[in-house]
Design a protein around this nucleic acid. Structure first.
Lengths: 232, 232
DNA sequence: TTTTTAACTTACCCGTGGGTAAGATATCAT
DNA sequence: ATGATATCTTACCCACGGGTAAGTTAAAAA
């Protein structure tokens, strides 16, 4: 659905003309707001900040959204929608449970490249009203449930070692969700490379095999430093 | 250092008398604030909320802290201090790199039980001034660096399969950091049980061994449902 | 072309909540 | 006991920022 996925340059031109195109303008606002929420946090992002970046004035925003929280909620909805779509695709395709988990891990790094995807994990749910929070948490539970389903399938078909699906889902989701905390587009690794490494570590683990380490470090490995760390 | 680690009941009694004991009262404020920050978020926590829970008035808080942000910063400092202390202990003890990573994972679940520990990962750094944020990020980089050191040691001593230490640290830290997002003291598993499962999954991975699944599900497994999910 | 209506602006309101000034009272040292 | 000081309260200020009222202009419809 997003017409401008990059989110790099501000969506000013959406408001350059006064032509009636509510859908595009609504999205421009959401995209800009999402960007700002991630940069400065929801609380510190003013409606004026959003308006300024779009070269319009604050009241114009209220032509498309009834209040600030609705903008936040729509960001969540868009992000969870992206994730759930991908999950549905994966669920539909053939393969073992483990392969579906790997596909999930692989797609996640990509989703965390997109602002809306990052919003889902980085933004604070306490900024939502109880009703909106309930809705978002429902979506997240749905995501969780699908991941656990993949894991249960894997245990059933023998591709995943028997374990508590709940803990396995927590562990896997935690590792990939955390990507949105450190991933920077300018970084040395592409989303695909990150996904490949994560998939390997989560399925095979850190421990060396019995005899000798056989698995060679991934081909596209770059030893360059990154200024940001695990916790940043 | 914390005199009351439970954080369960409010620290009202610290202010029951007007006896001069700044250290205890400062800690009572921090502990109460940390609790509230985690419950409602920093932005939505009012100075009056903190004061109310301690049965004092707002200006009394300014006797111990110069402003709201200083309280937040002290929560971060306390939390990172707890983590770094544990890291130092682990670094000092004998063992392979993999064993140190396992020890780290094991301790993490415990740290995420404590409010200050959870603050470090759950709270939004954009609420800090640039200067304070720089300090906190420095501490986090330190934590990250120590974990990567364990991993490099493990690769060197053959206990960890060759890989990019940076990605391995991200993955490991992500999985354990995420614990603070779903862990509830009332849950079915103790921190020790969580730690054990996580250590096993992160080191051995999800994939089943070649022949047949051999590893039996952890002894203390309880199949009870939990209302919260991976994403919550 | 005229009319209608969506799109937007200028000017403003006002609740909220961090922070303070000034004073009261219990505690501690002497 | 008595003064000195830390502790805490009552009463208040005011900047900030979400949201609105009312009017203006441009675009689409008739």
């Amino acid at each position: 659905m997003p017409k401008n996925v990059t989110g790099a340059q501000p969506h000013r031109k959406a408001f350059a003309s006064r032509r009636r195109d509510p859908a595009t303008k609504r999205e421009a606002i959401l995209q800009t707001a999402a960007q700002l929420f991630l940069e400065k946090g929801y609380g510190r992002t003013l409606m004026n900040d959003v308006a300024d970046r779009l070269n319009i004035t604050k009241p114009a925003l209220y032509h498309y959204f009834s209040n600030k929280e609705e903008i936040l909620l729509e960001c969540y909805r868009w992000g969870t929608g992206l994730i759930l779509d991908k999950l549905s695709q994966i669920a539909a395709q053939k393969g073992s449970g483990l392969e579906k988990v790997e596909a999930f891990v692989g797609e996640y790094a990509n989703l965390m490249t997109v602002n809306f995807g990052r919003c889902v994990m980085r933004l604070d749910e306490t900024d939502l009203s109880p009703k909106a929070r309930a809705e978002v948490r429902g979506c997240k539970r749905n995501i969780d449930w699908r991941l656990r389903t993949f894991i249960r399938e894997g245990i059933a078909d023998g591709s995943i070692t028997p374990c508590d699906p709940r803990m396995a889902a927590f562990s896997t989701a935690g590792a990939v969700n955390w990507i949105c905390m450190w991933y920077k587009p300018e970084g040395p690794l592409t989303p695909e490379q990150i996904a490949a490494q994560f998939a390997r570590m989560l399925t095979h683990g850190l421990a060396a095999r019995r005899k000798r380490p056989v698995l060679q470090p991934n081909g596209a490995r770059k030893a360059s430093q990154l200024e940001s760390g695990v916790m940043s």
